[in-house]
């Protein structure tokens, strides 16, 4: 029996085989979507570049070359993306900047998704005053423009990439809570939840074991689609000087730095801009593909 046959078996013989088989079917469906694969490629490239940054970056991202001869050089073989006003190689800075971007993405996903899921499913499942209290709190967070709220957090906690991440995470969970609540409302009265109640399952068991797995996929899709926005918010904070601090090679801060030369030395601002564009596009394409595969409502 080949590995594929084992995975696609209609009669799995163990829990593990059933789970892997299901994952493999999802992967096959995702693989059939070419744009999603492009997106996945871009995201994987970001991860690879972030991990390998010290080895693939040709120059030091912080310490520049000779300030008299190497400042603001246009793209060339020696500096494929040119150099900036402090004579630093922009390609190396973009490569190292991917680490910061990846950190933002991972930390926001790790902080915001569980908060949103927990609040949304709890509010949806219990209803009544629990729902009212939790959702009004969510509404309050939702009513603030994200960048302004992040600005307030940063102003309170002080500028820096870590504080920017916390600020972004704390402002990005409300949409996930709303989404999870809406999903929970549609399934909380379904017969399989009723059956679990009839077996005497406790509310936490139903929430964790039955409701959350069904909300998870649409929330994952939403988080993936939001990643582009999160990267842009981080870049925006960097651009305003409230995110990553110089000389950290953060893409948004780099664009802010290149703004002064945008007419004559276009590459200084454009290259990190291209990086933001590529990664945002990657997450969007991947999110779209994931929605087609994971979202039970989009699937026939």
């Amino acid at each position: 029996m080949t590995r594929t046959e084992w995975l696609l078996s209609e009669e799995p013989a163990s829990r593990r085989q059933a789970r892997l088989g299901q994952a493999y079917r999802t992967w096959l469906a995702l693989k059939a979507n070419r744009l999603a694969m492009v997106g996945l490629g871009l995201v994987l490239a970001l991860i690879a570049v972030a991990i390998l940054a010290p080895w693939i970056a040709p120059h030091d991202p912080i310490v520049g070359g000779d300030l008299r001869t190497d400042r603001l050089l246009p793209p060339s073989w020696a500096h494929p993306m040119g150099t900036d006003d402090l004579a630093r190689d922009i390609l190396s800075r973009v490569i190292h900047g991917s680490r910061l971007t990846l950190m933002v993405v991972v930390l926001v996903a790790v902080i915001a998704t569980p908060i949103g899921l927990a609040i949304g499913t709890t509010a949806g499942y219990f209803g009544g005053w629990v729902d009212t209290v939790l959702m009004r709190a969510t509404d309050i967070f939702l009513a603030f423009p994200r960048l302004i709220l992040a600005l307030a957090f940063v102003a309170a906690l002080g500028p820096g990439i870590e504080n920017a991440i916390i600020a972004i995470a704390l402002t990005s969970w409300p949409p996930y809570a709303r989404l999870a609540r809406a999903e929970t409302l549609t399934i909380r009265d379904s017969d399989f939840i009723n059956a679990a109640r009839l077996q005497g399952a406790s509310a936490p068991r139903i929430l964790w074991g039955h409701v959350t797995p069904l909300c998870l996929s649409s929330v994952i899709v939403r988080v993936t689609l939001d990643m582009a926005g999160i990267i842009l918010t981080a870049a925006g904070l960097g651009f305003l000087g409230l995110g990553a601090q110089p000389p950290q090679p953060e893409w948004g801060a780099m664009i802010a730095g290149g703004r002064r030369f945008i007419i004559d030395q276009w590459w200084v601002a454009t290259m990190p801009g291209l990086a933001i564009f590529a990664v945002s596009l990657g997450f969007n394409l991947l999110g779209d593909g994931l929605r087609d595969v994971l979202d039970p409502k989009a699937r026939k």
């Binding site: 379904s190 017969d191 399989f192 009723n194 059956a195 069904l214």
Partner: peptide, 11 residues
């Protein structure tokens, strides 16, 4: 329950 398609958790 009546509807066997709705009474089992899909995942």
């Amino acid at each position: 329950f009546q509807d066997p398609y709705a009474s089992l958790h899909p995942r």
